[in-house]
Amino acid sequence: MIGNWLDIGPINQIEAGTARTLPVQGGEEIAVFHTLCGEFFALVNKCPHKQGPLSQGIVHGDVVTCPLHNWNISLRNGKALGEDEGCVPTIPLKVDAGRLYLLRSAVIGGGEAGARAA
């Protein structure tokens, strides 16, 4: 159902190994990542530690390192890795015919956790 998915543009808008941001009016800003292995992920753009903008971190494998205090966050499930504990909501994302789509309810609801609560 196309209506449930929000088209956020062509995949070439995000270079591999980087992320870009998507502010949501009245909601949490989203960071959309493109890994060097060619995968795409969307997370709320806030580190669970001190709300650092994850979109600005270094991307390696399927992990982003927060620019504020070097927490490593899994892009796949939003969980902090290693000794650190915390989790940032993820937003279901799909790639279709060269374009990126986010699950609309999760975009508005502030991620997976929010979507379930709604």
Binding site: G3, L6, I8, G9, Q13, I14, E15, T18, R20, T21, L22, P23, V24, Q25, G26, G27, I30, V32, R104, V107, I108
Partner: peptide
């Protein structure tokens, strides 16, 4: 420029009203 610009902006409320 991509480092500085947002990918897009989401203004969800008109869509919700439509739904």
């Amino acid at each position: 420029a991509k480092l500085h610009q947002h990918l897009a902006e989401v203004r969800p409320f008109p869509a919700i009203q439509m739904e």
